[in-house]
Structure formats: structure tokens, C-alpha cells
Simulated scan of single mutants.
Amino acid sequence: MQLEKQQISIGLSNPKNPVNVASILRAAGCYGVASVFYTGQRYRFAKDFNADTKAFHKTIPTIGVENLKEVVPKGAKVVAVELVEGATPLPSFTHPDNAFYILGPEDGSLDSRVLSWCDHVVYIPTFSCMNLAATANVLLYDRLAKSNYKHGDGLIRKSRDNNNQTKI
């Protein structure tokens, strides 16, 4: 039993923190993301200092681009994740089968020009803004939780760390 191959890509707008991007790559590996795109120079300068302990950067294409709009995967609905008035709360959002999720920088917001070409804009209801990597993890978990995934001991055995052989 396993998670089915999904049609998910992530776009990061000018990320600055390599630890956050590494954490997003780990989440991407855990939740079946096909590719990660990013804009800007800040991550490019710092990416050698990443903390991708599962080395998902070797299996998930992580590609620097000039403009995220130019790399929207074929047939994907673009979903921006941003704390912006008028956005849909994530708990009531239905994820598209083929999604390109766009997340803003750690120290800023997605520009209104980016939001204008997105199919959906969602936000995660919290009492304060979340870290970029935490946002990606919550978003991807929400997608999984709302899906019809196959679950059970087979998935647990495949997903857990090699040092964990615990059973109940």
C-alpha cells in the first residue's frame, strides 16, 4: 500500500532560507511532489548550506526560474498560499487533482500581479503567520488528508525510519 503518484508541483517566490527549502524538499518527498521551482537569487547563493537530510534534492527536480508563471505544469490549477484578505480558508478548500502551489518569501508576500494569474488563493487560519516550510507541510498534509489515499501497515512500513520497527 502506498500513496498514489500525484500531480503536484511547488513554486517558491524568492525564498531566502536554505533550511526552509530543504524542509520543503523533505515534505515534497513525503507527499509525492513531482518538482519544485523557485525564483530569485537568495536561495541560489545559500543552497549549498541546505539541511535536506533525506537528500530529496537528488530525486525531486529543484529548478531556478525567472518567472513561475512560465513553468506552470500542463493542465495544473495554480493555487497561491498567502495571508491575504478574500482568500479561501484551507480547511474548506478542495484541492485540484493537478496543482501548482505557489508560496511567497519568508520575509514578504506574493505580489498582487502573481495573485492575479492564480486560479485559487488560500490561507491557513492561524493566530500568527507560519514559517515557509511549516506552511508547505500543512498544505501538503491537508491535501493528503482530504484525498482517498491507501492506508495501513504497508504504508507505515514504507514511510517510517529504518530504526523504527515498533508494532502495536
Rank of each mutant, 00 (worst) to 15 (best):
A133M: 05
G154C: 00
F93H: 11
H151E: 11
S92G: 01
N20K: 07
A27G: 12
H95C: 10
A134H: 15
D142W: 02
E70Y: 00
E82H: 06
P89Y: 02
D52F: 03
D153G: 08
G64M: 09
S92E: 11
D153Y: 10
S13D: 15
V33I: 06
I156D: 00
Q165T: 14
F37T: 07
Q2L: 10
E85S: 14
S128D: 12
T126R: 08
Q41E: 14
F45Y: 10
G104L: 08
T39V: 03
H57K: 11
R26W: 02
P18H: 04
N98I: 11
V78P: 06
N17Y: 07
P105S: 06
V138T: 12
Q6P: 01
A133G: 13
T88H: 01
N163K: 13
S13N: 13
T53V: 15
I10K: 04
E66S: 13
T166F: 08
I60K: 04
P18C: 07
P125L: 07
D97K: 06
K16D: 09
V36K: 03
T53I: 15
Y43A: 05
N20E: 09
V71D: 01
A34D: 15
H151I: 09
I102V: 15
N14V: 09
L132G: 09
S9I: 00
A28S: 14
L25A: 05
A136E: 07
T39G: 03
V71R: 05
K69Q: 14
L110H: 08
G86A: 08
D107I: 09
D52N: 08
G108A: 12
Q7N: 14
F49Y: 13
G75Y: 08
N137E: 06
Y38F: 15
D97L: 08
R143F: 01
Q6E: 14
V21P: 05
Y43G: 03
D119I: 12
F56M: 15
D97Y: 00
I63A: 00
T53C: 12
D153W: 12
F56R: 12
I24G: 04
P15T: 02
E66Y: 03
T53G: 10
H120F: 15
G29F: 06
F37A: 04
I8K: 00
I156T: 12
N137V: 11
A136M: 07
K74C: 05
T53Q: 12
N131H: 07
V21F: 00
N50F: 01
K16S: 13
E85Y: 05
H57A: 11
W117A: 10
T88C: 03
A87F: 01
N20S: 09
A87M: 02
T94C: 02
E82R: 05
K58F: 02
I24W: 00
